[in-house]
Amino acid sequence: MKIRLIDIAHARSGDKGDTGNVGVIALRKEHYPLLVKYLTVDRVKKHFEGIALGGVERYELPNLWALNFLLHEVLGGGGTRSLKNDAQGKTLSSAMLRMELEIDETITLKG
């Protein structure tokens, strides 16, 4: 089935230099394995094509049902150098949550 990431996760993003970090957290514990399985570095890299110009790194935090992504060269130089409206990467979190995922599993979404 096709799901939107926003239906199974919440997120927060921030900046360090020209790198943005996006923490993606499963809304329910049983959805964390879906994040691990489907929210791969390659998929995230493709999603942020033309936005994150450098590499993408992924870290797992099973204790928080969360993944942490580092998106390099994503802030137009970062800090005060950036000409971006979102120079601090505050909205990278919601940009991540726009992603759609095709999953093998069938899951029940609330509402």
Partner: peptide
């Protein structure tokens, strides 16, 4: 737990 989780993930790199 959710609001605290979001803050824990704010501006971090390698979580370990």
């Amino acid at each position: 737990v959710q609001t605290v989780k979001e803050q824990l993930l704010y501006e971090i790199g390698d979580p370990s």
